[in-house]
Amino acid sequence: MTTAIEQIGRSGMHAVRSFWDTLTFAFRILARMFDVRAYNSAVRMVLINQIYFTSVQILPLFLAVAVGFGAIVIGIIGQYLIHLGLFGYFGQLLMGFVVTEFAPFITVLLIALRSSSAVNAEIAVMKVNKELNTLHVFRIDVINYLFLPRILSGILSIVLLSWLFSIVVLVSGLIFSALLFDMSMNDYVTALLASAKFSDLIVMLIKCATMGFFIVMIPIRYGLRATDELTSIPVSVLHGMVNVFIAIMIIEVVSLIVVSLIEKFI
């Protein structure tokens, strides 16, 4: 009994310590992000490569997913609204659900599956191969050279790809609404504009940036936890990815609370 309670207490303390360490690490990186001295051509090169791997390489697949999901989601939503006699809410659902919730979520999911796992494995491999030691010996700051460009790439990629996803979904929605529901372009645009609010888009932007930050920072942190053994690499990736998904859920919930508070008080 006592052992079980001790175990719970130990797990709780470990979780709190881990959460606190993650936040401290996040603040260290945030502080470095705004330090101009942290940037040089080497960092820029890594940043460009990371954006290339995270955003440009994934683009064909991403656009196909956006068109596909857009058509399916708009088709299902439209059919349900017609069935319930609430087609008047079509614009609101597109803006409130597809653009501000669905687009960032799918984007984050795709990037997390592809790039977060890659970053986690990359850092873990570097740790096992002692490449991090090389950087240390040659006085190359790992935060500046390795972490910062990857995190910046994560933020930029999630923000840009979420917006791109929204635009593609809305354009495919325009085509599918005309085909499925006989909706004219004018009606579609009017319905969208009536529901579009700049405050929602700003919240979406902040949410995307926050998600971009954490879905790269967490894998980096777990990658650094790898030991000198090769077998520690999959373990660190596993833990990193589980925590990435927990972070995505937490950010989603926090963003929903923030949006409801904004609507309540402003």
Partner: peptide, 17 residues
């Protein structure tokens, strides 16, 4: 000599990527 150290060692391998 950390400021002018040029280490050639297996403990400081080339960056593999």
């Amino acid at each position: 000599e950390k400021h002018r150290l040029g280490l050639v060692s297996l403990d400081a391998p080339l960056i593999s990527n």
